[in-house]
Design a protein around this nucleic acid. Sequence first.
RNA 1: GGAGCGUUGGUCAAGGGGUUAAGACACCUCCCUUUCACGGAGGAAUCACGGGUUCGAUUCCCGUACGCUCUACCA
Length: 509
Amino acid sequence: MEKKVRVRFAPSPTGGLHLGGVRTVLYNYLFAKQHNGTFVLRIEDTDQTRFVEGAEEYIQECLKWCGLEPDESPLSGGPYAPYRQSERKEMYRQYAEQLVTQGNAYYAFDTPQELEAMREKFKSEENPSPQYGHGIREKMRNSLTLPADEVSHLLSGGAQHVIRIKMPEDETITFTDMIRGEVSFNSSLTDDKVLLKADGMPTYHLAVVVDDYSMKITHAFRGEEWLPSAPVHVLLWKYLGWMEEMPEWAHLPLILKPDGHGKLSKRDGDRLGFPVFAMNWKDAKNEEVTTGFRELGFLPEAFINLLAVLGWNDGTEQELFTIEELVEKFSLTHVHKGGAKFNYEKAKWFNHEWIKKYKVEGLRQKVKEVFAANGLEAYDDEKLDVVIELVKDRCTLLTDFWQQASFFFMAPETIDVASVKPKWNEDKAMFFDILSEKLVLLEEWNVADIETLFKETAAEKGIKMGELQLPFRIMLVGGKFGPTVFDIAELIGKKETIERIRKGLSLLS
RNA sequence: GGAGCGUUGGUCAAGGGGUUAAGACACCUCCCUUUCACGGAGGAAUCACGGGUUCGAUUCCCGUACGCUCUACCA
């Protein structure tokens, strides 16, 4: 009988939630849902020096926005609580001690200064970063080199110490990665990683295996950057006697910078002008706000969609997927091995497609929020629906609705005079003057009648339609954008149309 | 330096011993529209390199190059 699928996303609460992080969540989520499994959120807060207030809440909020909520988490609890590593502190020591007793780990008393000195001393051209491992551990101050009575004396005296794994010499460690297939490493190449820090907290290496074991995780997804330390984890599963329960690994490809190479970072976003975090993140230290995809006007569905296909595809030409389709179609065999450069233009394309795909009802509230954010609160809701339908095809981001739709509800504050002025003349001024007079007398206010009147008047004055439409547009909306001018005129109404023409006329003359 | 992982147009990518090597974004041209989009029709552009294996390699194998990740009491 197959075990019930359990996966986890285990971020450190150190700041904004990065694109790569959300994609890891997504793949976890899709895999879990696809197998009727459980998705757990575990907070890896073992490094109190990097802990950031509010980051955990922020992560939960991001997952909520994305629609990728965990089944078990610090917030909602679950059968394997607690879900914060800091609250699980006690259990790690016991396993670390067990490893010492078994001879797979040892106490190390070296100070940071001594470690630094060691690295300096053994540093050479061929080996720029000497490792605390076989060959060097014999020269350090640890329970392998010190006499037993001195070790117990140090321990009982409360001497600062860590517990390190004792990496075996020249052993080949092999495991199967669901994406990469069989991967092997030579154990001599990895150093004796610290398992338990001097403050009693576990490092990631110990914590991840103890927690994955105790939370019965069956499949572990993480970024490719973890591949080199995977042998340490595999060894730990083995030494702790849990090999049978070790999860299947999947090391996900990285999301790369759009230009050049390397992991995408927040700095790249700042530098190139696109978001990297799911939602706005405010740095507590300098109050600096980093804009997120949500606030920039992305739909969560689009955000998820673009992340899903960054490194995965279903083998067909389909690019637009709902979350339900993703759950159904996602497959690790179609996950790329190589990293993918992030392309913001394409990301926006996804959002554009999703806006077009959305029904007015779904967009309504979101557009209202955009309006509210710009200080527009009072308007006719029925008219708003009509407007949304009319302009949504030309909105790439939700925030574009401000430019594309606000002029239906309020006259433009400024108009783009410069676009009209060069070709402006007395005849045109006269045309609009006459037009406004005629509009006053127009009985039926609809697109057809307005357009007819406009054309007739243009013909009377002998001016080409095209010459007049741009100035008309500028008067009504303020700039070179928006739907057909006559649609706009009908929607904003007779009085408003005439007022805007008159105002435009005064600004142009 | 070492190890691991990777490499199909500018970008995301399908494919995989024999194909005119899909598709999307971006770019260019044209149509539609005398706004901006949407939409439509075209175009340019790719298998990193060198050896094998093979009747035949983009595909399999080995090298090389390049890139990335790791090499912390950070995750």
